[in-house]
Design a protein around this nucleic acid. Sequence first.
DNA 1: AATAAAAAAGAACGCTTGATTGTTTCTTGA
DNA 2: TCAAGAAACAATCAAGCGTTCTTTTTTATT
Lengths: 236, 236
Amino acid sequence: MARTIGSNGARTAEAIRQAGVKLIYKHGYEAMSLRQLAAEVGLQSGSLYKYFENKQNLLFDIVRDHMEDLLGKAEADLAGITDPLARLKTFSAFHLRYHMTRMAHVFIANMEIRSLEDEHRAVVVALRRRYEGLLEEILRQGAKDGVFQVREPKVATYAIISMLTGICMWYRPGGRLSQDELVEIYTGLVVNGATGPGAAAAKPFEANPLEAVTAQPRDGGTRAKPRAARPKAVRA
Amino acid sequence: MARTIGSNGARTAEAIRQAGVKLIYKHGYEAMSLRQLAAEVGLQSGSLYKYFENKQNLLFDIVRDHMEDLLGKAEADLAGITDPLARLKTFSAFHLRYHMTRMAHVFIANMEIRSLEDEHRAVVVALRRRYEGLLEEILRQGAKDGVFQVREPKVATYAIISMLTGICMWYRPGGRLSQDELVEIYTGLVVNGATGPGAAAAKPFEANPLEAVTAQPRDGGTRAKPRAARPKAVRA
DNA sequence: AATAAAAAAGAACGCTTGATTGTTTCTTGA
DNA sequence: TCAAGAAACAATCAAGCGTTCTTTTTTATT
């Protein structure tokens, strides 16, 4: 057998891309074999090379395209909005919705950066920097205007993005809370964190050093029974 | 050659453990080969099997021990503190310091859960649930006492932990900000988020749906040049 | 109908992997 | 001093890996 009836290059390319996202999301880039990927699409492994140069480039294409999409859509959403608080809410809502609807892509882009070769990683990191820069600039402007209480915009940027991105570690469509509700809850946390009085933070807080921990007996009998894992949920 | 001079079982076991953490952190579990690991310790790959049952169990041992350590130390730190706000600050500070000093372990425990076989993953997830339960209970108590404005303690727990854990994606010892400063900044964000007036969050916020995004040209010439990557930093 | 291009099959490659086995050497306590 | 056993070596295995190359079949073009 050779060329199969009804076969079409563009369609196959898209199928490979989607299957790649799915398998990398499920098993990880290293763990996914090209034979697995080929089987998922209904091809022989050798035939994949009509559609990408090698395995590494498949990953790079997926991650780069995702990052460019993310950045472009964020900039589009923010366009025309000038008020820092409104921009912060817009950014937060955009980020959350995007991450709830494209969990696999986001997950891959965050987890598989280490699997990218140096040059490819540099490209992706640069895109991420630009994306982070959007939020950082919002925080800086808001601090300048006096509406935000942010001492370190860079740190706050990392903190906020980590928090928002974390939603795709546990969110599953059809859960108890709707996307809108989650956006409201998370955005509330972000806005409070940025606009808060800072009084609590400013109060000197004496933390126990990690070493000074005193041992304490833990109950050995009441550990929670693991429930059946929800499909595909990394957190489950 | 065979048994080497000065060889000692306990010491070798510890060396294997440490090398395992180091290599899994750097390359990922799937990407780390046992020959690599053996070479790192100065052994032949076959000798490793004196110290673990198989590769999977090595990962499991590392992750489980880390989770038990994390949980135990957190409970010890919180012991005796009853005020919700103080407990929240203590938890936040503990989590941050722990994650700044044990980045590799934390990273592995978060990233390689997917590489654990079902039974092992269930054990680790149960431990993580107990750990998350500590924070959730703090938030519930604080909400009950009226000092926190937290609508959904579970969601807030995930959000806060994501934010705090995110620090080990970029923190490197010897950076511009000290551990104490970072603890203060992050804890301030957490406390503000939890205690905040909630006014901003309660105000209905009309978010653009993701689909309604209008394309906008992006500048193609001003993208940031990627700097030389800091060693080992996943984010760099 | 003839021809070129596209799409996929399928075989083969060199290599690495995790795992296992049997053997040898060294250390240590009695 | 010497046996017991811990520690490490060396060799091997089948399986799977990413990749390349050639061949075959289908589709599109003229």
